[in-house]
């Protein structure tokens, strides 16, 4: 059984829990068994928050914490200075950082090899596409590109189907555009 564990580092209110949910739904649409859950504590807007995914090709029975993720997504780059975002990760863990930094600069901050570090300016992309800084959605596009966990077309279809229930066409389109842009613009060394 192949299980991929993902950890999201964000600040409360940035949509990381929603992003973990969308990732779960999109990977489930590809036939995977999925889990998505955050660490719950006192809920304060802007407080550091972790959320997790487990994605598996066989049914998942374990319900313990994710302690050794092989994929880490940093939604807010200010957390690089205050949180141990590499905690428990193997040396070849993949890091995706929302930042305007180059992968080399982000890798230096992480103390990891640039081979496994990717960056994308998801905040700028969401401002361009949606007029608001909601970086979680474009990050999923970048993740699709670098991890192979989810296919871009499946992600776009799932996202559009979900957003259509609540939002007008313009917002749906802005979101899917932001995913496509991040997919194209994610930087590697």
């Amino acid at each position: 059984m192949a299980i991929t564990e993902v950890r999201w580092h964000a600040r409360a209110g940035q949509g990381a829990v929603t992003a973990a949910k969308v990732l779960a739904e999109a990977t489930m649409a590809q036939g995977a068994y999925v889990q998505a859950f955050p660490d719950y504590g006192p809920e304060r807007m802007g407080a550091p928050l972790r959320a997790y995914n487990r994605i598996s090709d066989a049914p998942l029975t374990m319900h313990c914490a994710v302690t050794n993720p092989s994929v880490v997504i940093i939604v807010d780059s200010s957390l690089l200075d205050t949180q141990d975002v590499t905690e428990g990760t193997p040396e070849d863990a993949l890091f995706l950082v929302n930042t305007s930094y180059t992968p080399a600069k982000a890798a230096k901050k992480l103390g990891r090899s640039v081979d496994h570090v990717y960056t994308v300016d998801a905040t700028q992309i969401s401002i361009d596409c949606l007029g608001r800084p909601i970086p979680n959605t474009p990050l999923l596009g970048a993740l699709a590109r670098i991890s192979g966990l989810v296919k871009l077309d499946v992600l776009l279809e799932d996202l559009a189907a979900n957003l259509k229930k609540k939002f007008p066409e313009k917002i749906v389109k802005g979101n899917t555009e932001s995913v496509e842009r991040a997919y194209k613009e994610v930087k590697t060394k």
């Binding site: 973990a20 949910k21 779960a24 489930m28 068994y33 999925v34 889990q35 998505a36 859950f37 955050p38 719950y40 049914p59 998942l60 319900h63």
Partner: peptide
């Protein structure tokens, strides 16, 4: 189980 199941998304 509270949170572990109640607040966690799964298939």
């Amino acid at each position: 189980d509270g949170f572990i199941i109640s607040h966690s998304i799964e298939s």
